[in-house]
Design a protein around this nucleic acid. Structure first.
Lengths: 148, 148
DNA sequence: AGCCATTATATGTCGCGCAATAAATTATCG
DNA sequence: CGATAATTTATTGCGCGACATATAATGGCT
């Protein structure tokens, strides 16, 4: 009499990752909606806050995304007035994405968002840090395998 | 002189989850493409393999997905001949999703897929199990917070 | 000049969430 | 009991995101 049958996904790590990722999206949505941002757009802005004037490819590198994914996304935050896109004069293939004052100003909200998210998880910081270390290790391991 | 600057996402658990989830998708894609399935479609089939004849809402409950997400998805695997959809005669609001022989037959591939995925991760089973236990705990914790 | 690699863009498919709608069932009240 | 209201369930439409593929433009190299 040990256990209720849980689900077909009991031993599927990928499913738990999938479900947690969706859950994160649901946590972020009400926090980002007032700013008119989606989660992915927010990630791009975070990247630019720490390093302005990046090319599309550089942003995609740190996010693990294709330029075909980023192009329309960046155009949307450009339309919102948060960034501008300019061809690199030294290499006209590249497009440099730069923050506007309005885009920079949004950074002020980030620490508040961050604390709201953490409190929405319901776990201690120690546990979260430990978990993150393991996930990060997995991520690097997958990337490493991918190159074989 | 400790560390190269990694990324703006060093302390963002959500980002690592996001990135690992994308990485999982890239692992599954070449395995599922020959079967003509996407990852989400595969999850629905897994659910049906362990419990046939579920309603759309039941499937959505175990996957954490909206019925509006599932309806078109299930229609696609119906078009592929893997499932059939029938109204529940006892409650005509419900749609019962049932496997066809062809859908059941696909289960034969699942163990192979599973082992391919695990070997694509490059980590020991012990570590993976420990990691999964923590992620699952987080998932349940988020869901619990969500109800407050 | 010609070839090849790199970079970004355009297009089409699928997945995801939300809002609004429709249909069926259940609850409530006269 | 019967009419009406509220709830449940699935569907539809829309916007965004992620990926693959194809295309265009630029730069580097011989």
């Amino acid at each position: 009499m040990n256990q209720i049958k849980e689900s077909p996904f009991d031993d599927m790590l990928c499913f738990d990752v999938y479900a947690v990722n969706l859950a994160f999206g649901r946590i972020y949505k009400p926090l980002l909606d007032p700013l008119g941002l989606t989660y992915s757009q927010y990630l791009v802005l975070m990247s630019l806050w720490t390093q302005d004037d990046q090319t599309v490819g550089q942003i995609g590198g740190s996010l693990g995304l294709d330029s075909s994914t980023l192009t329309p996304l960046i155009k949307r935050i450009e339309a919102a007035g948060l960034v501008v896109r300019n061809r690199d004069p030294l290499d006209e293939r590249r497009v440099i994405v730069s923050l506007t004052d309005q885009g920079r100003a949004l950074q002020a909200h980030s620490s508040h968002i961050r604390s709201c998210v953490v409190s929405g998880l319901g776990m201690s910081l120690e546990e979260l840090q430990q978990l993150q270390a393991m996930i990060r290790k997995l991520r690097k391991s997958i990337v490493a395998q991918d190159r074989d």
